[in-house]
Design a binder for these strands. Sequence first.
DNA 1: CTGGATCCTCTATGATACTG
DNA 2: CAGTATCATAGAGGATCCAG
Lengths: 135, 135
Amino acid sequence: MDQIASKTGAYLKKLAAAGTGLENCPVRVVLAPLGSKWSPLVLQLLSERPYRFSELRRLVPDISQRMITQTLRDLERDGYVQREVLPTKPPSVTYSLTPMGHSLFDSYRHLLQWADANHDAVLAARAEFEGNQAS
Amino acid sequence: MDQIASKTGAYLKKLAAAGTGLENCPVRVVLAPLGSKWSPLVLQLLSERPYRFSELRRLVPDISQRMITQTLRDLERDGYVQREVLPTKPPSVTYSLTPMGHSLFDSYRHLLQWADANHDAVLAARAEFEGNQAS
DNA sequence: CTGGATCCTCTATGATACTG
DNA sequence: CAGTATCATAGAGGATCCAG
């Protein structure tokens, strides 16, 4: 495992220092929840303004009730999202990004923009790859 | 679905324009492969210098033979990684980042650095969240 | 050395029904 | 409205064996 420390950057060095393996990798700990199916979309939406639970559901019709709840819980758990229950009747709940959530999204945004800008190039690469496979 | 276009940014607008749903979301198309378990690590390693297959395996002991192959294939497929077979005996294969791969990693790096810098804050948020749950 | 082929397990996600 | 609980399933990932 020390080979990792000697061959790569700070992230992997900390990884090696963690001892057992990759489970404690600081990068992975933070990134793993963002790799879920709906987190990017929810973060994107909340980066604009707070939304209520039902608003988010309507904005993302494909998401199931179960998964939006879980996604929001995960984001809240990691400190990216703040949940506020308004004492109306029936109750309404708004979700908004915390300062850390906004900070995260500021970094995440670079990747989203890259993805948007290079979408076609990636699709082209895939098409060519498939073509070479066929030959 | 038009509500999405009216309420959110360019990414979701394109998403809506795609028609059927979220499967064609340009951001998701590009990001999904990066959310895999080993892609970030492999990209990180290859961003430093090219590596041979067996080198990568040794650097990341936890990865299975099957998964490193698949990860490299996926990255190659999307145009991030170039595979070169050297006519030695026995054959050796080197993997390196393409220009697009380096471009991707330049954007990805922001997120990695954020993750590294905010690792403790996220863990603290999780601990507090768990604590509140218990009460 | 580099991988392909198989089998198996576990987790993420989805569908559905129920509640304050 | 905003969830929780339960059941079902597809796909990611791991272990192992085989081959050019």
